[in-house]
């Protein structure tokens, strides 16, 4: 693993208009090429806000972000060409078919013609959707929608993929297909930044995790090492509960 980070976050802070507390409070982080990095935290911890800033969805209140050597404040359009985003919500047009959705999003990345068609065919086959390619996405099952949602973020072969809860609310089979594919592309060098509430999934998948709570990073490291540091806990979930508490969050 190269020691030059592909993502550098320096004292990143985000305070939403009208909010009293920062959603992200001066966090600093380095993520290295080829990592599967997990951002874990309870609801409202700041995971989605952090990912949204990294993806250029909205600006930070303060702090610096560098992605693949590019400054997010000046080179966001270039950064967007090397990142892929798989949002938590199903970000697809329900009245368009799976193929039409992928064609539209592929076009938005500058992909056209047979190159795009071949890619779409490849991914539809890979994710077992080839028979449903012409059907409106609104009629897909939850798992099928998640798979198309993932493909839309992969079409342009990004160097870095941000996944916000990619396996939430889907069947086991779809979950396995998605996770196996993520591990496969990670082996080819793609860096993955991933948020999840599934601690077991994160423990298996991630090379490192950061546990965030109330906008602050409260733990950072390899999942196994984090568990090992707390001998009385047997898994990451126990460590997570220990660090973030049992209070339910909004």
């Amino acid at each position: 693993m190269s020691r030059k980070p592909i993502i550098e976050i320096r004292e990143l802070t985000k305070i939403y208009t009208g909010a009293e507390e920062p959603a992200v409070n001066s966090i600093s982080l380095e993520i290295f090429p080829g990592e599967i990095f997990g951002l874990l935290g309870p609801n409202g911890a700041g995971k989605t806000t952090t990912i949204s800033i990294l993806c250029g969805l909205f600006p930070a209140t303060s702090g610096n972000v560098t992605i693949d050597g590019l400054d997010s404040q000046t080179d966001m359009v270039k950064i967007k060409q090397v990142i892929g985003v798989v949002p938590q919500d199903i970000a697809l047009y329900p009245t368009l078919s799976g193929r039409e959705n992928l064609t539209f999003f592929g076009n938005m990345y500058g992909l056209h013609g047979s190159a795009l068609r071949d890619k779409i065919d490849h991914y539809l086959t890979e994710f077992g959707l080839e028979k449903h390619a012409g059907k409106a996405v609104g009629k897909y099952s939850g798992g099928m929608k998640r798979r198309v949602n993932l493909i839309a973020g992969l079409l342009h072969d990004p160097k870095i993929i941000f996944l916000d809860e990619p396996t939430v609310g889907i069947d086991v089979q779809s979950r396995v297909v998605i996770l196996e594919y993520l591990m496969e592309i990670n082996k080819k060098g793609v860096t993955i930044i991933y948020t999840s509430h599934y601690m077991e999934e994160a423990e298996q998948l991630c090379s490192r995790v950061a546990i965030i709570d109330r906008g602050n990073i409260i733990a950072l490291g390899n999942p196994k090492e984090l568990v090992a540091e707390q001998p009385r806990f047997q898994n990451l979930e126990n460590v997570f509960i220990h660090l973030t508490g049992k209070d339910m969050r909004d």
Binding site: C55, L57, K80, V85, P87, I90, A91, P94, G110
Partner: peptide
Amino acid sequence: GGSLFRLLTMPV
């Protein structure tokens, strides 16, 4: 629906 979220993360 979130489509705008995705569009805003694209290089446009």
